[in-house]
C-alpha cells in the first residue's frame, strides 16, 4: 500500500528526530559531562527551568527582541526594496549601502552598536534590523526585477494606478520571494539576537546561555540551545508556513 504523502513525511521526520537524539545520546556517553550533556539531563534541566519565572522572563524578552528586530528590518528592507526594485537610479544609489551592510563582519556591527546604544534591547534590536534589512531588500529587488513584463504591460493598458499595481501586481508577484526570505530572516534573527544578548545584555536567552557557560551548568546550556531551536521552529511552522501557504494558494493544483 502506498503511503499518503503527509503520513510519509511525518514518519520519516520523526525517524530523523529519533536518529538525531540517538547520535546525541551516543556522543554524550563517549564524551565527558563537562563537554556534552545527554538528552535526558538536558530534558531534566529544561523541565526544572520551565518551572521558574526567570525562564519565562528570558524567553519573553528574547521573543520580543526577535519580533521587533525582524519586523523593523523586514519592513525597512521591503519598503526600500520596493523603491529600489521599481527605480534603477534608487537601486544604484543604494548599492554601496547594501554592499557595506552585507559585507561588514557581524561582530564589528555588534561592537559599534554597543558603543552607540550601550547595553540592552535597543542595541539588540538595532543590530538585528540592520543585519536583516539588506537580505529582505535584495529579495524584494530581485523579485520585482523578475515580474512578468506582459502583466505589467496589461496593467499599463488598463491604467492601473500605482496603489492598485502595488497591491495586485507587484506585491503578489514577489510574495514567494518574500515568504522564503521571511523564513531565512527569522532563523538568522534569532541567531543574531542571541549573539548580541551573549555579548551585551543582562537578560534574555543569550544572557542566560552565557550565565550557564560561566557556571559550567552544561545541561542548562543545552536546554537553552533547545529553546533557541524551538523558538525558530515555532515561528516557522506556526506563523510563517501557514502564511506562505495562504499567499501562494493560487499555485496549488485543484483536486
Amino acid at each position: 500500500m502506498q503511503l499518503d504523502n503527509r503520513l510519509h513525511r511525518y514518519i520519516f521526520t520523526t525517524l530523523g528526530v529519533f536518529f538525531l537524539l540517538l547520535c546525541w545520546q551516543i556522543l554524550s556517553i563517549t564524551m565527558p559531562d563537562i563537554v556534552l550533556a545527554s538528552p535526558v539531563e538536558t530534558a531534566r534541566a529544561l523541565a526544572r527551568m520551565m518551572g521558574t519565572g526567570i525562564f519565562w522572563q528570558h524567553f519573553r524578552v528574547t521573543g520580543s527582541r526577535v519580533f521587533t528586530g525582524v519586523f523593523i528590518g523586514g519592513l525597512a528592507g521591503f519598503v526600500i526594496g520596493i523603491f529600489g526594485g521599481l527605480n534603477k537610479s534608487v537601486k544604484y544609489m543604494l548599492e554601496p549601502f547594501r554592499w557595506t551592510l552585507m559585507s561588514t563582519p557581524a561582530v564589528v556591527i555588534v561592537v559599534m552598536a554597543m558603543l552607540w546604544f550601550g547595553m540592552g534591547s535597543t542595541m539588540v534590536v538595532f543590530i538585528t534590523a540592520i543585519f536583516l534589512a539588506p537580505f529582505v531588500y535584495v529579495n524584494v529587488v530581485k523579485g520585482l526585477e523578475m515580474v512578468d513584463e506582459t502583466v505589467i504591460e496589461m496593467a499599463q493598458i488598463y491604467n492601473f494606478p500605482f496603489s492598485l499595481k502595488l497591491k495586485h501586481v507587484y506585491v503578489p508577484a514577489i510574495a514567494g520571494h518574500l515568504a522564503s526570505s521571511l523564513m531565512v530572516i527569522v532563523g538568522t534573527g534569532v541567531r543574531i539576537v542571541i549573539l548580541a544578548e551573549v555579548l551585551g545584555t543582562t537578560e534574555g536567552i543569550g544572557y542566560a546561555l552565557s550565565l550557564s557557560r560561566t557556571n559550567l551548568d552544561i545541561p542548562a546550556l543545552f536546554a537553552w540551545i533547545l529553546i533557541c531551536i524551538a523558538l525558530v521552529g515555532i515561528i516557522e511552522y506556526v506563523i510563517l508556513k501557514p502564511l506562505q501557504d495562504y499567499v501562494l494558494k493560487w499555485k496549488k493544483p485543484t483536486r
Binding site: 506582459t150 502583466v151 488598463y158 492598485l164 503578489p172 493560487w250
Partner: peptide, 22 residues
Amino acid sequence: FQEPRLLPWRTAVDNVSLPLQA
C-alpha cells in the same frame, strides 16, 4: 492579447473587476 495575461494570483472575478476599479 494573444495570451490571456491574467493575474495568476487573483480570481477570475478579480481579474475582470480590477480594470474597472482602476
